[in-house]
Design a binder for these strands. Structure first.
Lengths: 220, 220
DNA sequence: AGCAGAACGGAAGACTATGTTCCACAGCTA
DNA sequence: TAGCTGTGGAACATAGTCTTCCGTTCTGCT
């Protein structure tokens, strides 16, 4: 049985019938299912993805050489979303703070972090993936630093602090996805208010280093 | 052959020799190793604990009927620490805000959350454990509400928000334990500053409910 | 000195979970 | 109708892990 794919971006409304069309739809259904399953549990078995998608195992293996391939695809997609959001934020020339805040809200909303950092370590990373990650990090740093240089950010903070905030929010898991997103937005709002306290003293302790945050791409 | 136990805090400088003494020391070593291992990875194999403790598997099974027993012990200890800290905070009659802030700092410092919520779900909970958890939750609520009633907390927040903050901080994992603790203190400080903004508007979205936070004792 | 038994190390056993392959089959297409 | 693409799902292989078990070491007491 073929699912009516919920969510997901439609590309071209291909003919409703035909085997090719059904297969194409399964492409989407499978990706969406994989995203949902692995975001909820990065160590989930591949059979859980098939179940959630309402397809058999072979439908997965026809599309991906193995589990790692699927994981890499999801991770790469997440990274691309991250990059796109960062570029969008950088193109906002008006308010550096709002650009940063909006960027963070969109990243959290898209649950990009669960797709990148949380998945890293469950597969052997690719050269290509490494480049994308580096690019993503660089862009995010620019978004952050621009807000810093505009004097809109509490002193003592750096880009790695931002990454850690993403980490923390991605660890929040409630009943369903929508409720989780609500709560994450709520707590992100709290954090943003803390980051905006430009006249507050720097937070205690030595700040996180880029290396400490990057290391996780190989660890676990 | 018996290992020369490395590290481990000595309680009473009992006779340096004697088999009984070594066994008693192993009690400590094993518990400490289990804490460290399961805090780093709640799904770690029991052999990892033995390795870290520098003892054989049988040293564990002599003390605990099985893996779950050990997990329950750790969880119960964590809960008791939590309760003790909450009671200490309640006995501070001077500054409700500082009592709350200090409570949260100590809970995060002791990494209690990794011992309770993060471990829950890896074993079948006990009746006793449920009571302890309920008591812990009740006390924490009192600590929080006292600060609220003193007008020291930003409007719109509740005890479950505090639990979620613990969740988020417990998800932070860096190189070693000390560094992790540093960073957690840092980000807790940020969050506390956000909670202290009494004249800021309530954070967006419907607040978390106690049920949403409690549910995790049975889930997974 | 010598023995009983506590405490232990670690291999072997028993299972479970999971990634991957394989094959028979359905439905479109020509 | 023949053939090919896409599929379902059982079967297989394997790695990981909990638990048991047995031989060994060392202590404490007689």
């Amino acid at each position: 049985m073929f699912h009516s794919y919920s969510g997901g971006m439609e590309t071209t409304p291909a003919p409703m019938s035909g085997r090719k069309a059904q297969a194409a739809r399964n492409d989407q259904v499978i990706l969406e299912a994989a995203r949902a399953v692995f975001v909820a549990d990065p160590d989930a078995p591949i059979s859980a993805v098939a179940e959630r998608a309402g397809v058999g195992i072979s439908a997965l293996y026809r599309r991906y050489a193995g589990k790692e391939d699927l994981l890499r695809k999801l991770c790469s997609d997440g990274l691309r979303t991250y990059i796109a959001e960062a570029e969008a934020a950088l193109s906002d020339q008006d308010d550096p703070w709002e650009a940063l805040a909006g960027f963070m809200r969109r990243v959290v909303d898209a649950d990009v972090h669960s797709l990148t950092i949380n998945l890293a370590g469950t597969f052997t990373p690719t050269e290509e993936l490494g480049r994308e990650a580096a690019r993503a990090g660089g862009l995010a740093e620019q978004v952050f630093d621009r807000a810093v240089q505009a004097g809109a950010v509490r002193p003592g903070l750096n880009t790695s602090d931002m990454s850690l905030i993403f980490d923390q929010l991605a660890a929040l898991h409630l009943g369903d996805e929508e409720r989780t997103a609500q709560i994450r937005r709520r707590h992100l709002a709290l954090m943003l208010d803390a980051l905006r306290l430009t006249s507050a003293p720097p937070p205690p302790g030595p700040p996180p280093t880029a290396e400490e945050v990057t290391r996780r791409w190989t660890a676990r």
